[in-house]
Design a protein around this nucleic acid. Structure first.
Lengths: 259, 259
DNA sequence: ACCTTGATTTCGGTT
DNA sequence: AACCGAAGTCAAGGT
């Protein structure tokens, strides 16, 4: 039996089941009416209401309101969780703490509608495709999809200002710094490229002062108008790479699009 | 009664309870053995294992492994959720979809250990202190804590490159662009300030080419060595503002403890 | 609806 | 342990 279920358990049962379950490596969910206090990186208070409380054996605690993806209060994995019965209130109190940063979540339970211990066995790992790392692989294998004649010189090059996605060379032999984004490019992505480009600021102009000795490219499926303008103003190039394939040498992707 | 609880429900019950609950504005949690498929911004597959499944009436779906803060698969609020019994498998299938972006999560349930409908009533709002917005208020009220003689001219000033936190003026009347961070400053925060500073790039140097006509300040509790170096190299100033207090009367709690 | 930014971001990788 | 950057980031607030 993977679950043990309790309807309207009393305070002692709630505290005991939570402590035992977490200690044994099981997760606990509880439907409760509670109030929550958080103190740490910020501090906050959530007044009484009905919420779903989840505690995992790795120290994770989640308090979910009836809406929204994100928990209203939580503790990430790595902390310690204790459940006890409050001296004054006689009600269950769940406290999750951690250090670095030092923070604390306290859930004061007013009423427990239901409580479930779940001895979950899960060894499967999530496998994902279409990540930025795969887009890197695609570009490394198909640099001509970014620009005809482009040759990758280095991948993930470390500099004193951070890591360049690609350091490349164009058909003319001019160095090209490339920042790749899987999603629509934002100002922070532009910033990143700009920061790397500043490393070459001293070499920026040719003898006649008109041509760049190093090109900077932001490669992404799209970008907002503001991002494009920032690129234009900074002398950087936005290259729309609308799609990428992970298999073989695809020929369906459109070529570099200089607006 | 706020919860209805089912132990080892059959497939029809699972599908029916989920559909009814979500339609009625209740949340559902289920302890299940399942596999999950995601298709959308990326695509992914999670093989069979025991997980906690949560569905909320706003369209949120969460699949939690026994560890970690974040769900392994999910759908944010706003989508539609359907639960049915698979024709071939005879097992429950929960599908969550949304458009913009178009994506889909399919949870194929192999076994349902437990199922709970929770008619949660929660009107309380979370109240938080120590946010960046409060740090802005503090600086607006106490500019001398940043620098003696500093005067705030504008807050949240929009420019073609984004929003300045503060546009100020120092004791000498020199304009100061200020970017504020509640947490330790990182390179991306430096980047942000740098981007805003580029707006004034033409005015950067005095007649003798040594003094800036506009100052740039990154205000945060701390910064990494690399960030400090980047500021130095770019002619920007890092100002450590280790702590801040709110003016609000009656709040005894000390706010974020920076160090 | 899009854009910009903050977030108790979390998480993983590397130094 | 700190730092850096991705994330299916989410969510709020403004235009």
């Amino acid at each position: 039996m993977s679950t043990e279920r309790y309807a309207s358990p009393d305070a002692e049962t709630v505290a005991r089941v939570i402590d035992e379950a977490l200690h044994a490596g099981a997760l606990v969910t509880a439907e409760v009416r509670c109030e929550v206090e958080y103190d740490g990186r910020t501090s906050g208070y959530l007044g009484p209401g009905d919420r779903l409380l989840v505690a995992k054996p790795d120290g994770t605690v989640l308090v979910h309101k009836p809406a929204n993806h994100k928990p209203v209060n939580w503790m990430p994995a790595g902390g310690t969780v204790t459940a006890s019965v409050g001296d004054a209130s006689g009600e269950p109190v769940v406290v999750a703490r951690r250090t670095n940063p030092r923070e604390r979540v306290e859930v004061r339970v007013r009423e427990t509608y239901g409580l479930t211990r779940f001895d979950a066995d899960d060894t499967a790992e999530y496998e994902e495709s279409g990540t930025e790392a795969e887009m890197h692989d695609y570009i490394a294998a198909n640099p001509e999809e970014v620009e005809e004649g482009l040759r990758i010189v280095e991948h993930e090059r470390e500099t004193k200002y951070g890591y360049l996605d690609f350091y490349a060379s164009d058909a003319e032999g001019t160095p090209v710094v490339i920042e790749v984004k899987r999603v629509q490019a934002t100002l922070t992505h532009f910033d990143q490229l700009k920061r790397y480009m500043d490393l070459f600021a001293g070499d920026e102009d040719d003898v006649d002062g008109t041509e760049r000795a190093v090109r900077g490219m932001l490669v992404a499926p799209s970008a907002s108008a503001r991002v494009k303008r920032a690129c234009r103003d900074a002398g950087l190039e936005f290259v729309a790479l609308p799609d990428f394939e992970t298999e073989a040498a695809g020929t369906n992707a459109s070529l570099a699009d200089f607006e």
